[in-house]
Amino acid sequence: MKWMQALEEGNVEQKLLCTGCNARLGSFNWAGMQCNCGAWVNPAFQLHKSRLDEC
C-alpha cells in the first residue's frame, strides 16, 4: 500500500491520501493520538467521514 511507504521511510505520522485524486482522507500516527474522551489510542488512524463512501 502506498501509505506504508511513509512508515518504511521512518515517518511516524502522515496524511492518508486517495491514490486516484490525492484528496486527503485522514491521517495516521503510530505514536498514538488522544481521543476526545481523554484516552490515548496507539496506533491511531483518523478518517474524515465526509470524504468516505458509506456502504
Rank of each mutant, 00 (worst) to 15 (best):
L25C: 01
L52A: 04
A31P: 00
K49C: 03
A39L: 08
P43G: 05
S50L: 10
Q34G: 01
F45S: 02
W30M: 14
V12F: 11
L17T: 11
L7D: 01
C55Y: 11
M4F: 14
F45Y: 12
R24N: 10
F45Q: 02
Q14R: 03
M1R: 04
K15M: 05
K2I: 02
A23M: 02
S27E: 06
G26E: 01
Q14C: 03
T19Y: 02
V12P: 00
P43S: 05
S27M: 10
D53V: 11
A31F: 07
Q5M: 09
N22Y: 03
G10I: 06
M33L: 13
N11C: 05
M33G: 00
L52T: 07
M1S: 14
C21Y: 07
D53R: 05
F45C: 06
C18N: 03
N29A: 03
N36Q: 09
D53Q: 12
C37I: 08
K2G: 06
K2H: 07
C35K: 10
V12N: 06
F45H: 04
G32T: 04
M1W: 03
V41C: 07
C35I: 01
N42R: 13
K49D: 01
E9A: 14
C18S: 06
G26T: 05
R24I: 11
Q14I: 00
G32E: 08
